[in-house]
Simulated assay, not measured.
Amino acid sequence: MTLRIGIAGITGRMGQLLSEEAAASGALVAGGIGRSGDAEALFAASDVVIDFTNALTAERHAELAARSGKPLVLGSSGLSAAQEAAVAEAARTVPVVYAANFAPGVTLLFALAERMAAALPPEQYDAEIVEMHHRQKVDAPSGTAIALGRAVARGRGQTLEEVGMESGRNGHTAPRGTGPIGFAALRGGQVVGEHTLLFAAGSEHIALTHRSFDRRVYATGAVRAAHWAVGQPPALYDMKHVLGMG
């Protein structure tokens, strides 16, 4: 039976790529909505919905996924704690794949970051994350940068909230603290996405960098996640589960 994929955000740049990749995967695009549209009808017509809209609609779409019993693949960034809690609540009823970044390489970057953070003590190695995106991006740091910070904190046996974030350094600042993770966000041109994690010690620096050159890599990953999600038990998943790393 042909998988029916619904696309929330179909009128945007990612929406077109998602439509193309869904068709290339052998699935049927059951429909789509843009900034407006009948989201309830979209879930009813689909076997799984991919949502690349924005944080403001994430909670509503999560609730519709749970109500309709349809899996959700969520790629919106900049969600608040309350919005993430709503997504987690929906995942008690249906499978939800929620990822800050659907590129397979970024998923591997998160895994490497966690392992390296576990091996490099914060008293000796400061962790700094630098990201750059196109000039239209409105949230900073990016969702991927924050997820990278969470991976570093996990490797050090803490949460990002416990470790702390340092960002927006400007003017005469105090010396860098020991332990917090530094973030710097750059915006300009049409950069698809670049993320660098730097571990800096007195005697060495180690850097991990991922660069996306085409947004299609996110669409390909999201469609892969949509195929994978159908038939999974209710839970909150991310791309490491889709790639068999969970």
Rank of each mutant, 00 (worst) to 15 (best):
E131L: 01
G12R: 04
K70N: 09
R156E: 06
A55M: 04
L3M: 14
D126Y: 02
V163G: 01
D126S: 13
G78Y: 02
A145L: 01
D238T: 08
G221P: 09
L79N: 11
P95L: 04
D214V: 03
H61D: 15
L56K: 13
A100G: 15
G149R: 08
P121G: 01
A151W: 02
T196W: 05
Q232T: 09
E114L: 06
M14A: 06
A85W: 09
A65M: 04
F52V: 13
A81K: 13
L72F: 03
L109C: 05
R187L: 06
L74G: 05
D126M: 12
G177E: 15
L3G: 02
P180T: 03
V163F: 00
A62D: 08
H172K: 11
L17E: 11
R150Q: 15
A8T: 09
S68R: 15
H61L: 14
T209L: 06
G202E: 14
G177Q: 15
L3I: 14
I7S: 02
I5V: 11
G244H: 00
P234M: 04
A41Y: 11
I129V: 02
G12K: 05
E123K: 14
G171P: 15
V73K: 04
Q232N: 12
H241M: 11
E89R: 15
S167D: 04
G221M: 08
D47F: 06
K70F: 07
A8G: 13
E84P: 00
A90S: 03
A55I: 00
A225V: 09
F183L: 05
V217M: 09
M239V: 09
V94D: 00
H210R: 01
G37W: 07
P141R: 02
A81W: 05
A127Y: 02
L186K: 08
D139K: 14
R13F: 09
F213H: 13
A39C: 03
F213D: 10
I146M: 09
F199G: 00
L197Q: 00
E194N: 12
T107M: 06
Y237R: 01
R115M: 10
I7E: 06
V96W: 03
Q136C: 05
A41I: 10
D238V: 10
V223Y: 10
P71N: 08
L56I: 11
S46I: 08
L208G: 01
H133C: 12
I181T: 08
A174E: 13
S80T: 15
R115S: 13
L236T: 00
A229N: 05
E204H: 11
E114V: 03
L28C: 07
T220D: 07
R60W: 00
V230F: 11
E204C: 14
P233C: 07
A41R: 15
H172V: 13
Q190F: 08
G179T: 07
P175Y: 04
R156T: 01
V49A: 04
G37S: 07
D51L: 09
A118F: 01
D139P: 00
